[in-house]
Nucleic acid binder design. Structure first.
Ligand SMILES: Nc1nc2c(ncn2[C@H]2C[C@H](O)[C@@H](COP(=O)(O)OP(=O)(O)OP(=O)(O)O)O2)c(=O)[nH]1
Ligand SMILES: [Mn+2]
Ligand SMILES: [Mn+2]
Length: 417
DNA sequence: GATCGGCGCCAC
DNA sequence: AAACGTGGCGCCGATC
């Protein structure tokens, strides 16, 4: 099986997922939107009061004028980047000047709430069908082989903040069903361990270690930030970039990068070898032979060449992760289908708890390394077993592949099993 | 009214 | 001058 054949077998499954859709609690989202809407109005008027006049808060250009001209906040002094048109008003930049004016904290809060309302709370209810189900379209056309999801994108539903995460409560199972969510553990780190053969990292995974957690504890940050560190370093983050995301001096960031590659020495070697091979071939390859050509490697412009090198490292790993989950989707659908066929051929009443069929288990979402199923409550145990076994064993690497399974009535309140 | 680049931000 | 990678989408301001 090569990457092309994988995608061909996947297509009918993606079509089925599109047709099935996911059930949305529309009333919940509408209520939530009203509440957030009131908070937004309040913040707006407080901000206009604080700066002395109204303006369009959604316009970065107008906001930059207010902050950096009227309020005379010195962007250069605070290390705020100049964009093409004006100085940046990104959350990262505003964070640096938060203490210089009382309105800035409120602007950040406004941005957070407006984002949730305009991107999720208001658009999603408008897109449901008569059965309150939402039908995203999955595409297979990204440069690494990952899927993408659009109209609406259901691969970027908030999870980081408590308030954002509430939105996941709106993704619910039908009556008599539960959601089963299965997410690969540290997936791209495992693939990096496999490709590089780094003994330290391989042993860590064989011992069941959680490298994201270890990084989090060492740095005193949350686990999501630790992912940014671990993947950032693996994929070529600069000391400057790392210093920005951790809010530490570049020297300290460089020390972290050095330590990372001292801890995992063969990772550094693998990176160099992969870049060299990409330069001589002109392309890189995933585990199942998907190729990505990287013309940037030949560019006379250093910035582009460096970008090409990072692409050369990232693509085989991210692309292989995509292939693994695609194979799992194919395998799971094959198993459910063959059990269903077996059952109908021997004409058993479909009541035994041992029996599965396409009405008992529906694959409804794919979020890069996570699958979400809607499963008849009485079949959760059997389905969970098949899902775990398929996802963990459909591909064999030199490290174990582990899946984290959770069950619940909605996508927010799911408990590990 | 549609389209586009820029900015910004959500997720993995 | 840049400064982990992969996406989709909302809003603004310019343009047609
Ligand atoms: N380059 C890069 N890749 C990322 C980033 N965040 C996530 N990914 C990729 C690599 C991850 O292995 C993969 C799946 O994301 P997850 O959020 O599930 O994290 P991961 O599986 O590593 O850890 P987990 O044990 O599931 O919490 O997506 C990031 O910030 N940068
Ligand atoms: Mn994961
Ligand atoms: Mn995940």
């Amino acid at each position: 099986m090569n990457s092309y054949q994988i995608d061909e077998k996947l297509k009918p499954i993606l079509n089925q997922m599109h047709q099935t859709g996911v059930k949305l609690n529309v009333d919940f989202l509408n209520n939530f939107s009203q509440k957030i809407g009131l908070k937004i109005l309040k913040l707006e008027s407080e901000i206009y009061n604080a700066v002395g006049h109204k303006f369009n808060l959604n316009s970065p250009s107008q906001l930059a004028k207010v902050l950096y001209e009227e309020l005379k906040i010195k962007p250069g002094q605070s290390g705020i980047k100049r964009k093409k048109t004006h100085h940046s008003t990104s959350a990262e930049s505003l964070g640096k000047i938060e203490k210089l004016h009382p309105s800035i904290k409120q602007i950040l809060k406004y941005r957070e709430l407006a984002k949730l309302k305009n991107t999720y709370l208001d658009p999603l209810p408008k897109l449901v069908d008569q059965n309150s189900r939402l039908h995203t379209t999955y595409m297979v056309d990204t440069s690494t082989g990952r899927l993408s999801s659009k109209n609406p994108n259901l691969q970027n539903i908030p999870i980081r903040t408590d308030i954002g995460k509430e939105i996941r409560k709106a993704f619910v199972a039908e009556n008599g069903y539960k959601l089963l969510a299965a997410d690969y553990s540290q997936i791209e780190l495992r693939i990096a361990a496999h490709f590089s053969g780094d003994k330290t990292m391989i042993d860590a995974f064989k011992e069941g270690k959680d490298i994201h957690r270890t990084t989090a504890e060492e740095l005193g940050v949350d686990r999501r930030t630790a992912k940014t560190v671990n993947f950032g370093i693996l994929y070529g983050v600069s000391s400057y970039g790392l210093s920005e995301s951790l809010r530490i001096p570049p020297e300290d960031a460089q020390a972290l990068i050095d330590k990372y590659f001292l801890t995992f020495p063969k990772l550094a070697k693998y990176i160099q070898e992969t870049i060299q091979k990409a330069q001589s071939n002109g392309y890189v390859e995933t585990l199942y032979g998907r190729r990505r050509y990287i013309p940037e490697l030949q560019s006379p412009i250093e910035r582009l060449r460096k970008f090409g090198e990072r692409v050369a490292i990232n693509t085989p790993i991210q692309g292989t992760a995509a292939e693994i989950i695609k194979l799992a989707m194919i395998e799971i659908s094959r198993k459910v289908f063959s059990i269903e066929k077996l059952v109908s051929s021997i004409d058993i009443q479909n009541t035994s708890h041992k029996i599965l069929d396409t009405d008992s288990v529906k694959l409804i979402l794919q979020i890069h390394d996570e699958l979400v199923f809607e499963v008849k409550e009485e079949k959760i145990k059997e389905v969970a077993e098949i899902v775990r076994d398929s996802m963990e064993n459909v591909v064999k690497l030199s490290v174990p592949i582990i899946v984290d399974l959770r069950v619940g009535k909605n996508w927010r309140e799911i408990e590990s099993i």
